[in-house]
Amino acid sequence: MRGTKTTKRRHQELRLADSILLLGFVFLLLLPVLARDSDYVLQVFTHAVLLATLALAWNILGVSGSISLGHAAFFGVGAYGSALLSLNFGFSPWLTVPLGGLVATVVATLMGLICLRLRGAYFALATLAFVEIPKVITDNWDGLTKGSLGLVGLPGFTALRLGRYSVDFGASPAAVYYLVLCSALLLASLVALIFRSNLGLALQAIREEEVAAEAVGVQVQRYRLLSLLVSGFFTGVVGGCYAHLIRYIEPGLVYGIHFSAVPMIFAICGGRFTILGPALAALILYPVDQFIFHPLLPAGHQFLYGAVIIVAVLFMPSGFWGHLRKGQFALLKTRSVE
């Protein structure tokens, strides 16, 4: 009797989750039409989607149980790498953004060598401190990076031509929005693939019971490094996109604690053990912050992020999406269930 009741409730919850997802997706697709009068709304959502991508990238490491407080290192290096390549060699951002991601991967390797011997709290503290290394170097390498002055006048994404059609990212905020949305969807699909692959299985096993994971043959350190590198690469790519969208960067901005904190907060509030949770949290919390709290409290509106992370860790450790989808997190199905 009780069993059927809970099953019924769970089904309702799952249906609710699915409808939220579908509605949200349709909303995101139609947003440029819905908000055609307001560039501001579109701008906020463009940034929200960018942050969602960042949170997805963070969670590639997060799913292995390691909490990084140092992803701003990859974000900043990706932004600077891409910006400098485009400024000094005149390459198109389409090329320099992935290259910036590769530079971030190099930095991720360095972070891995230093920090991955550590676990849990000590890993988190080490990553928090690590950010200072690329930041201070960028700050001091005046000849290359112009130091704390920052880099201005970065090229934006150039127009894409496909036969007779062309998309001009300079003129159309909607085009930029769809570009960012596409990258977010691509990364989300990739994360879904990773979660369902043996790599994902290994990372989750490491998170749950490292000793047992080792005993079934998972090469723990190798997988942890791999997830850090992949996570670092995509964080660097997002950093590069950010640089060419904002078209101005400085060390205090791109290496700031903001870009370490925000993906962690979104991932934990949304649900570290889910594929979409981190992205959904970004898509909800950032607009709430911008549309509701920013007008109310111009100074100090970001207290929201502090409040939600405290509530999430203390009262909903699997995140809101993880909580809604509880019972349906099985990624690999049996024949019988299908």
Binding site: L201, E208, V216
Partner: peptide, 25 residues
């Protein structure tokens, strides 16, 4: 030491896939 948040089936699959030749899925 089960992998607590993974399903029972996933636990056993994790036992199998890391012993032989590496496959992505």
């Amino acid at each position: 030491r089960p992998f607590a948040k993974m399903t029972t089936l996933e636990n056993v699959i994790a036992g199998r896939v890391f012993s032989g030749k590496f496959r992505l899925f």
